[in-house]
């Protein structure tokens, strides 16, 4: 690991000043960044520890929730208001990583964690456009069971590995950002990007910009929400595909629905095509499956992940059926 300076930030203003140099990085729980530094993939010259910034989870005036970026994943999953009002968020966090890692990992760090693509990690043995732009992508044509099928490019087929972000994009979460020049807020759905021909650029953040909080808008629908994760072993594994869903059914028709997918794209994938296809339709399994398949129609599969579109479609339909039955 290369030498770096370490500094603890005591407020967001000090953090963004300390984090302004181009090779500075903000440090949360370290569960991803410290590992990447050990692998020689991340080489920051300075670490600005932001775990002492806001960890609070409070109700907003509008009836939503404001979650400090330094809150641990475990604290969010366990919080009474999250469990009651946004159960899919609790479920998604609990489906990810291990108890130890959930205790360490922060909300901000979870959002900004990097792909677990094996070729991205293989510094000496594989080409990766994300790690070394222009080098090529050995995941394409390689072992790509875990790779993306939506929004991919010929430069990168890596996935974003977060579970937590999937319900967050489904629920229209807002990300609060601070920078040396001031603060702003953007939708989480607009923070991560498709790889295009610049897969090394993963977010819409400006250099030195810090996530200070996420805000969940009030969403009555989210009280009936679910998260289902399909993976190769029952615990402590990344998703092959995952689904966050919330559904409201009235008189056997879908009146409102939120859907997002994990494990299928370079970003948390909001399934807007399926959502639009469902509103006003009969709340039946066949309708759910047809809408889900419409979402996956644009999928481009690789050698080892041709199963993903149909698995994702069926999982969406199964989750929606369960949510509909609970309202019958």
């Amino acid at each position: 690991m290369e030498l770096f300076t370490y500094e603890r930030a005591h407020n967001p203003e000090a953090a963004v000043i300390a984090g302004a140099p181009s090779r500075a990085k903000f440090l949360g729980g370290g569960t991803n960044l410290v590992d990447l530094m050990r692998e020689g993939i991340e080489r920051p010259s300075a670490l600005v520890d932001v775990t002492g910034l806001s960890q609070t989870i409070v109700e907003t005036a509008e009836g939503g929730l404001l979650i400090g970026a330094a809150a641990s994943n475990a604290a969010v999953a366990e919080h009474r208001l999250v469990r009651n009002r946004y159960p899919a968020l609790s479920r998604a966090i609990l489906a990810g990583a291990s108890a130890q890692i959930r205790n360490m990992a922060t909300v901000g760090g979870n959002i900004l964690q990097r792909t677990r693509c094996r070729y991205f990690y293989d510094v000496n043995g594989a080409r990766c456009n994300k790690r070394d732009p222009g080098q090529g992508c050995d995941a394409i044509g390689g072992f790509n069971r875990y790779h993306a099928v939506l929004g991919t490019s010929s430069h990168c087929i890596a996935t974003h590995p977060s579970d937590m972000c999937i319900p967050l994009v489904a629920f229209d979460a807002i990300v609060h950002l601070a920078a040396n020049g001031g603060s702003r807020s953007i939708k989480l759905a607009e923070l991560h990007r498709d790889p295009g021909d610049t897969p090394q650029i993963e977010t819409a953040l400006d250099p030195g910009e810090l996530i200070t909080a996420i805000e969940l808008p009030p969403l009555a629908l989210a009280r009936r929400s679910a998260y289902r994760k399909v993976r190769d072993r029952a615990s402590y594994a990344f998703a092959l595909i995952s689904v966050a869903a919330a559904l409201h059914v009235d008189d056997n028709r879908v009146t409102d629905v939120r859907l997002a997918l994990g494990g299928v794209a370079h970003k948390p994938w909001r399934a807007l095509i399926a959502e639009r296809a469902l509103v006003g339709q009969p709340a039946t399994y066949d309708t759910f499956l047809a809408a889900a398949r419409a979402e996956l129609r644009a999928a481009q599969t690789q050698r080892d992940n041709a199963f993903k579109p149909e698995l994702a479609a069926r999982t969406i339909a199964a989750v929606l059926r369960t949510l509909a039955e609970e309202q019958a």
Partner: peptide
């Protein structure tokens, strides 16, 4: 419970 391997001592 946390992982000491991924915790920097200075933290």
């Amino acid at each position: 419970r946390k992982l000491s391997c991924l915790s920097l001592a200075v933290q």
